[in-house]
């Protein structure tokens, strides 16, 4: 589009950084709404939440926590590598981050799968007939919150894919690093949310 050309001509890294932060704020409040729901229902059903949480596997949760923390570090390092003009290292670090995200999702898949096998999923007969109301709420929130988080992982992977492509094409380079930096910021947000999800769901027994 001819009308766009001049806008690209002046590149404003600080502008896009603020833009990304503002977007992160909306994401924080999106999850914030869910944290409010969680807080209220945990306050109203403390015992049921503890009982239900015992079903969750702390080991898988901890492994996924560490995977996300490491991936946060690798994507942060990839920005450093780009700034140091080490294109190869940048790409490798970003690919590692991508693979870690994938492993996280695979773990999540098996974790959810086991729950489904035990008949624990929203609206299931087992849940409505056997479990208490507090437990139903716990699992409802567990699926919604980890599900939404997983969706953000997928989006983060897409953004990383775009960043990878543009780095290899050369349109993201040390002087125009905003896309990679913003991909990093977004990925740290995903990590940040998991930092709270992990203790709230896995560590309350």
């Amino acid at each position: 589009m001819s009308q766009v050309i001049h806008h690209d001509a002046h590149y404003d890294p600080e502008g896009s950084k603020i833009g990304m932060w503002l977007f992160i704020f909306t994401e924080l409040l999106l999850f914030g709404g869910l944290f409010i729901v969680y807080a209220v229902y945990r306050y109203l059903n403390p015992e049921a939440f503890e009982m239900a949480a015992e079903e969750l596997n702390v080991t898988i949760g901890a492994v996924n926590t560490i995977i996300l923390l490491v991936s946060s570090m690798t994507i942060a390092m990839s920005t450093t590598a780009l700034q140091k003009k080490q294109k190869g290292t940048t790409v490798v670090l970003l690919e590692i981050t991508f693979m870690l995200a994938l492993i996280f999702l695979i773990n999540k898949y098996f974790e959810w799968g086991i729950k489904f096998e035990h008949g624990i999923f929203p609206g299931s007969e087992y849940m409505t007939s056997e479990l208490s109301q507090g437990e139903i709420l716990f699992y409802g929130l567990y699926f919604v919150m980890t599900g939404l988080h997983a969706l953000h992982i997928v989006v983060g992977m897409v953004i990383m894919g775009v960043a990878l492509h543009r780095i290899q094409k050369g349109t993201v380079h040390p002087e125009r690093a905003s896309l990679l930096e913003n991909a990093g910021l977004y990925w740290h947000l995903v990590d940040l949310i998991w930092i709270f999800l992990f203790p709230l769901f896995y560590l309350i027994s």
Binding site: V37, V40, Y41, L44, Q133, I136, L137, L141
Partner: peptide, 15 residues
Amino acid sequence: GIGVFDPALGGDPIL
């Protein structure tokens, strides 16, 4: 039917 606002499943409509 996740239950968060459904009083039949323990949810609170006022929330």
